[in-house]
């Protein structure tokens, strides 16, 4: 399609560091190519800010092809912006109109404290993973042949769908309760669906949920917002599966 250029107004959250108070600042940016991605538009803004001797906007990004999960941004009231199934790095400026005002805010959650401007600290996800998001085997490669245990294709496919999570935190950002249940549910499900992970599925659910609660995420009220905003389309049936695993484990727990 033919490239067009648009002029936009940006309202961007600026915050010096985790301690300081932030505010929305207004910027105008002209001649933005509609072929640019949203992050390339921010690059352009930063280029302008640097040449104006102003401080550039800090935002997280890395792979810019929708898989690393580093980019975030709450754009015009939605996690990763107006397009569904899309990370911010794959959101293109053709989705916006000439003259439009665009709000850009960081993920908002107590468990994701702001580092600077639009950058938040998502290490809570890492700690949840460390609490049980693994299969407890050593790394010798000598466990057993990869084809020793057949896995029904249907389960393998479902496990893969759950494993597609990129850990971006859009689920938490979009949830009105800042709940991390979709993230945790996806991880618990991936392993629970595979025979290799089934062995410690329940202990895993207990440990990951405990850590999730400790991190200060809110509770799930099944609004389903996470599922809609997840750039990888992960289903809330994974949350239900986690609930089952957790309840089974809780009922058997003898500690």
């Amino acid at each position: 399609m033919a490239t067009k250029f648009i002029n936009i107004t940006l309202k961007i959250w600026r915050q010096q560091n985790s301690q300081s108070k932030g505010s929305l600042e207004t910027y105008t940016l002209n001649k933005v190519s509609t072929d640019s991605s949203f992050l390339e538009m921010l690059d352009q803004l930063n280029e302008q800010l640097i040449s104006d001797q102003k401080s550039p906007v800090a935002f997280d990004h890395d792979c810019r092809e929708g898989i690393c999960g580093m980019c975030s941004l709450y754009i015009n009231g939605r996690a990763h912006g107006p397009a569904t199934g899309t990370t911010t790095c794959q959101l293109h400026m053709r989705k916006f109109k000439d003259g439009e005002t665009i709000y850009v805010e960081p993920w908002r959650s107590k468990a994701f404290p702001i580092v600077k401007d639009l950058v938040v600290d998502r290490s809570a996800f890492d700690r949840i993973q460390q609490a049980g998001g693994f299969i407890s085997i050593n790394t010798s490669g000598k466990t057993m042949d990869a084809n020793a245990i057949p896995v029904p294709k249907q389960n393998a496919d479902k496990a893969f769908e759950a494993a597609a999570c990129i850990g971006c935190g859009a689920c938490v950002a979009a949830c009105k309760n800042s709940s991390a249940m979709l993230f945790v549910g996806a991880k618990v499900s991936q392993y629970a669906l595979l025979p290799q992970g089934k062995v410690e599925a329940q202990e895993r659910a207990l440990n990951m949920v405990r850590q999730m609660d400790e991190e200060g995420f809110g509770n799930c009220t099944n609004t389903g917002a996470c599922e809609v905003e997840c750039p990888k389309g992960i289903s809330i049936e994974n949350i239900a599966r986690m609930n089952r695993e957790f309840l089974l484990a809780a009922s058997k727990s003898n500690k």
């Binding site: 490669g141 466990t143 057993m144 990869a146 496919d157 496990a159 991936q190 392993y191 290799q196």
Partner: peptide
């Protein structure tokens, strides 16, 4: 072998 044991789908 290692990856399958680790739960790589």
């Amino acid at each position: 072998d290692q990856c399958v044991a680790q739960g790589v789908p």
